[in-house]
């Protein structure tokens, strides 16, 4: 599934996220920042699962659960463009 992150969302090196539309800010942990970048670069959730499980010692099942939660939170905080 493709998740489109709003194009004007800024992410700093330290994981600080700023939404210029709403003025809200958020913090991402390093893994969160990595996934955020992958999604912004256009990778689908399936591809993100592959990339991360290849790179880290984590089961696809467990990571998918976390990723679903992460994506749900991105939506909830209105950081994505819904088609």
């Amino acid at each position: 599934m493709k998740i489109r992150i709003k194009s004007d969302i800024a992410l700093s090196k330290t994981g600080f996220v700023f939404n210029p539309q709403t003025g809200e800010s958020f913090s991402l942990n390093p893994m969160g920042s990595e996934i955020f970048c992958l999604l912004r670069d256009g990778f689908s959730t399936e591809e993100v699962v592959k990339i991360i499980t290849d790179r880290f010692d984590v089961s696809a099942h467990s990571f998918s659960t976390d990723l679903d939660d992460f994506v749900a939170m991105l939506r909830r905080y209105e950081l994505t463009d819904e088609a």
Binding site: F26, S27, L28, N29, G32, F36, D66, F70, Y77
Partner: peptide, 8 residues
């Protein structure tokens, strides 16, 4: 993981 930064 993402968390809103709320300031009070």
């Amino acid at each position: 993981m993402i968390k809103p930064i709320n300031a009070t």
